Structures are given as structure tokens and as C-alpha cells.
Simulated scan of single mutants.
Amino acid sequence: MSFRTLAAAAPLALVLAACSPSAEGSDGQDAASADGATASATAEAAGAAKSVKEENDLYSFSYAYPAQVGGVPELAAHLDADAEKAKAALISESEDDRTQAEANDYPYRAHSFSKEWKVVADLPRYLSLSGEFATYSGGAHGMYGLESLVWDKQANAGMDGVALFQSAEALDEALGQKLCDALDAERAKRRGEAVPTDAGDDGTGFNSCQHVKDATVLVGSSGGGKFDRIGIWFGPYVAGPYAEGSYELNFPVDAAVIEAVKPEYREAFSAR
């Protein structure tokens, strides 16, 4: 299954679903009312899921997170701030583009931003989330990507999934040839032929092994007790051309992966 890299706008699959116990206003004016748009927002008591949607002639915006996030006030506040920042940027960029369109006599296409957070794993101390986002800014196609967020319930702080490890390179080394083999196997399925062994690197990286530093890392759990699964997500244009989309690879935690984890987080992991 399905991860901060950008690529072409299409829905993302939830990474590591099987690993989960379950799976800027420019000048202060409300752009929605200014454009005669409809807006809706739901949610929002502690412990509740959140879903905010706004659509008008200038932009469309949506942001959502599940009830597990609503149950952690500090985390909910962190993501609410993220939503406000994203909306402010969207409005500012949309207004700038519309001004340019009017000045240069070309049609303005409404911009959009959406992000949805989903639970990858909910452990006693940690909540692992994936944040699927998509943007459109008037071009031929949009962009999308995936973020990783692991919230430490005890410390009331969050981090990217890869921050649990000593470095991206350490995790790369721990996964080793398995990462390259899994990537090439998936490439072969999509292309209908194996990646040539003598293909080498043509500068695109579409035939060579890719690395954790260019991926989004998610940590999952098969039973909700410990992290025992690792998800590696490469956005389109990283491991293959646009048409191939993103690459989603999953691996069990083993002794080598645990060795790559920072000592302070090793108790949260177990080998399968």
C-alpha cells in the first residue's frame, strides 16, 4: 500500500493501511464572501474529527483530520495552524494570479489546496499520521504529495517519520538491496518489462535505485503495540516518469532497521 515530495495531482492511497489498527487572507477580506462562494466547516470539539471545505470563484480549500487528532489538543492546534497557513498562502497566490490574468487578458483558473490526515498507527505513546495533500495553481495539472507526522503524546511534540532514525542514510543502509529490488519489481509491473540491468543512471533516476532521503517515511504497526512496518513513498518524477505515478513500498521492521533507529526511540519498535 501507500507517502513530502510533490507530483501530479491524483488521489493518493493511504500508505500502510494494512499496518494500522484501523489502516492567508491577503487584506483581511473574506474571499469566500467576496466571490459569492459557498463555504462549509464541520467539526471541532475535542476528540472529534475535523473537515473544513470552502469553494468560490477564486479558490477551493479543504483540510481534514481524524478523531484521534481531535483527542490531542496540542496536536489539533498544531494542525489547525498548518491549515490556516496553507489557506493564507492559497488566497494570496490565487489573488496574485487572478490579477496577472486580468492584466494580461488570459482566463483565470481557480486555484486549489487540499490536505487530509489519516492514521497510520495509534500506539500508546505515539500517533503516526500520513498527510495527503494536493494543489492546483492554474497549470496543465496539479501537484500532490505526502507528509509524515509522528506525534509523541508524552512529550506533546511531533516529528517527521524519518526523524525517528539516526539519519535517512542509516535507514537506507538498513533496508539495503531490498529497497532497490522492491522498487524494480514494482517498476517492472508498471512497465511490462524488467528494468535493464545495464540501464545505468541516465540523469532522470527512473532506472536507478532511489534513496530514503528523497522519500517520505511512514512508520506503521500491525497490532497497535509497537512499530513493526516501514513505508517508503516516492513521488512521481522521483523513481519514474509522471505517467507511472508514485511508488509505495512497505517493509517489515527487522534487526537492521531497529539498529538504524535512534536509541531513544528503539523501545517503540519491534522486529517481525
Rank of each mutant, 00 (worst) to 15 (best):
N207A: 11
E193K: 01
W233F: 12
R229M: 01
M159I: 04
D35E: 15
F227C: 00
E24T: 08
D201E: 11
E193P: 00
G205S: 03
K85W: 06
P196E: 06
V162Y: 07
V219Q: 05
G231H: 06
A188R: 11
A174S: 02
L146W: 08
A31N: 02
E132I: 07
D97T: 13
R190T: 07
T135W: 00
L75K: 03
G70R: 04
A199F: 04
E54I: 12
N56C: 14
D30S: 09
R109K: 14
A83T: 02
A23Q: 08
E102G: 08
Y126T: 09
I258Y: 09
A81N: 03
G225K: 11
Y108K: 09
L58D: 07
T99C: 09
S60G: 13
W151S: 07
D214Y: 11
G223F: 04
L123V: 04
A8M: 15
S167G: 10
Q210H: 09
Y136K: 04
S40I: 10
E93R: 15
C209Q: 04
F61C: 06
D181V: 13
K53M: 12
V257W: 01
V257C: 03
K189L: 09
K53I: 08
Y237D: 13
G138S: 06
H111N: 13
P124T: 00
L75A: 00
K213G: 09
A48Q: 06
K189Q: 14
A163Y: 03
P124A: 05
G223S: 15
A243Q: 15
K153N: 06
E259C: 07
F133T: 01
V219P: 02
A49R: 09
L175M: 07
S270Q: 12
A268D: 14
Y106N: 09
L179G: 06
S137D: 04
S60K: 11
A243S: 14
A77G: 06
K50A: 07
P236W: 00
D228A: 00
Y136H: 05
V120I: 15
Q100P: 01
Q154L: 15
E267I: 13
V261G: 08
V257H: 03
P11G: 02
A168L: 00
A89E: 13
W233C: 04
A121F: 03
L146N: 07
A215G: 05
E54Y: 11
A86E: 15
